[in-house]
């Protein structure tokens, strides 16, 4: 191949690739809005909060960004919004050993940011992030009614047992040894902040007395 032929191949070949990219971009732009929910004013305001506090300087979103803190794409999918709001306003009141500092968000900004994260959680991301293999395999295998309720209410979104589960709330591996009283657990599930000051856990008001008792019985077996 002569130098000139190589030069022409480079110029025209690259231009062709770029034209294909532009065509694919136009096609993609036409499809994006159908793959995501409508963007309300609140969602847009939340996106601006995301940029204002440079959240991407620590977190990833759609898997892109820094790798210092958890990915936020599906943050609202499993974590209760009450928890997220309290955490955003002052992270270390909620979780003393959190690496996240208090950034000074006001209530409105926290609400908007949660609305934005709710939007990203509903975007069609071709099934990313994938469901973890082990956690999916053990889901649905419950030894007792209480454990079934633990799974039904997705308690492991925030709590760990034997290393599996989220780290947003306290580790429950030995909660039965720490809190052996069934009544305490029932009161806690009905209204967490009545027994734990500054608790960010939502009240589980949709459980009846029988269910509350079954779940509390399961919890005190953890020791």
């Amino acid at each position: 191949m002569s130098t000139n032929a190589a030069k022409n191949l480079f110029i025209y070949g690259s231009l062709l690739c770029f034209v294909v990219l532009v065509i694919l971009t136009i096609d993609t732009m036409g499809k994006l809005d159908k793959r995501a929910p409508e963007i309300t004013e609140e969602v847009n305001a939340g996106k601006k909060v995301w940029h204002k506090y440079d959240c991407i300087g620590c977190h990833t979103i759609f898997g892109n960004g820094s790798y210092f803190a958890p990915d936020m794409t599906k943050a609202t999918e499993r974590k209760p919004k009450e928890y997220l709001k309290k955490f955003l306003l002052d992270p270390r009141v909620i979780k003393a050993d959190s690496a996240m500092p208090k950034l000074g968000l006001n209530e409105q900004e926290a609400d908007d940011l949660i609305a934005f994260l709710d939007w990203t959680s509903k975007v069609d991301t071709n099934d990313w992030p994938p469901k973890p293999i082990l956690a999916s395999a053990i889901a649905g295998k419950a030894a007792s009614a209480g454990q079934a309720l633990f799974q039904k209410h997705d308690c492991s979104a925030c709590h760990q047992i034997q290393g599996i589960g989220g780290a947003a709330g306290p580790d429950l591996t030995q909660v039965g040894a720490r809190r052996p009283d069934i009544d305490w657990h029932i009161r806690h599930l009905k209204d967490p902040s009545s027994v734990v000051r500054d608790s960010a856990m939502p009240a589980f008001t949709d459980m009846n007395d029988e269910e509350l008792k079954a779940l509390a019985e399961f919890l005190i077996t953890l020791k």
């Binding site: 293999i133 760990q160 989220g166």
Partner: peptide, 11 residues
């Protein structure tokens, strides 16, 4: 640990 086993990011 995180993606395959399902452990928490922070842990």
């Amino acid at each position: 640990m995180e993606r395959l086993l399902g452990l928490d990011y922070v842990t």
